[in-house]
Amino acid sequence: MFHPLRVSEVEPLTDDAVAVTLAVPPELREAFRHTPGQHIALRRRTERGEEIRRTYSICAPAGPDPALRVGIRLVEGGEFSTYALKELAVGDTVEVMEPTGRFVLEPRAGYFAAIVGGSGITPVLSIAATLLIREPTARFCLVRSDRTVASTMFLEEVADLKDRFPDRFQLVTVVSREERQAGLPSGRLDRERLTGLLPALLPVADIDGWFLCGPLGLVSGAERALRGLGVERGRIHQEIFHVDETPSAAAAPAARGARAAADSTLTATLAGRSGTWPVREGESLLETVLHSRADAPYACKGGVCGTCRAFLVSGEVTMDRNFALEPEETDAGYVLACQSHPATAEVELDFDR
């Protein structure tokens, strides 16, 4: 569900990024209470009447009085990010969906680590800050990669964590496009480099949870490095912040079924109500639902955010790509409605599970 929220602050972070804070009225505090790592979808209508939705992770620590602060980086050709950087101002109203997402860490004792690239710092900032504030024995190691120091988002916030928790927060920074006089040599954090770097930084086997966030290449390389170092799949959590528009070998279809089916019908349950509709040729199951149910949950429509996750009750589907669901979720029967097409004559989805 979307709610109109007032913009209370727009803070420049870099030349191409801002932090936007949204005021949450008392009657909506419960609705916008978030778990560290979750995201919100923002919606606006253009002058042409088109609806644009984009998801942005909450960077503020989680607490009883939810602070909705998100980081937005300019994307070339991005309609919402261009609007946010060039037009959005204090006092404006933005439609905001309630927090969602499973790239989260409920604060608990332990030793945790994150590998992030670029704007992938956003959800991890909330995760790390909330953990360190709430759990006096917890430890956190942040390995972050950025193009340059000037392009690094949330420099002050990360430095503050280092000052407040010097014995429990470890920061390792790598830049890929400029030389530095101190610290690690510049260059990309790929699989080979991380395989050598991580064991020198921390006891890899003792880390209770790894959080990988950023572009597809960095996240994929980091996961392969960790798996090669013996880390169990269940301890690795990941969220992709950017993928190419064209599916690639890295985005092999996560299929439940082998081929598309013609003349299919979809039955879907959403917010306690069910309906059955014919699936038009070439459209996704999300698009089928949206013809009759404008409240169907979605944000990116690119298989990245996971907002449209639904349980496959019956039938089979094929997914064009999947960057949001963990293997255990697809094994349990969940699919991304925005990427799913029917592979049987009848398909049933449940968005409420």
Rank of each mutant, 00 (worst) to 15 (best):
M1P: 13
S8Y: 02
A17S: 15
V18F: 02
P25Y: 01
P26E: 10
Q38M: 05
E47P: 05
R48M: 11
C59F: 00
A67N: 00
A67C: 09
V75K: 01
G77R: 03
E79I: 14
E79A: 15
F80Y: 13
T82F: 04
K86N: 10
A89T: 04
G91R: 10
D92G: 00
V94H: 02
T100S: 13
G101R: 03
F103H: 02
P107K: 07
G110L: 01
A113E: 04
T130E: 07
P136D: 07
F140G: 03
C141A: 12
S151F: 00
T152H: 06
V158P: 06
K162M: 07
F165S: 09
Q170P: 01
L184V: 02
D190W: 10
D190A: 12
L194K: 04
P199Q: 13
P199N: 10
A200S: 13
W210I: 10
A225L: 06
R227D: 00
G228R: 06
L229P: 03
R233T: 14
H237T: 02
H242V: 03
E245W: 07
T246Q: 14
A250K: 10
A250M: 11
A254Y: 03
R259M: 11
R259F: 13
A260M: 12
A261Q: 11
T265L: 12
L266Y: 05
L285F: 05
D295R: 10
A296M: 09
P297L: 06
G302Q: 13
C305K: 09
R309M: 05
L312P: 02
A332T: 06
L336P: 10
S340E: 07
A343M: 14
E346M: 01
L349C: 05
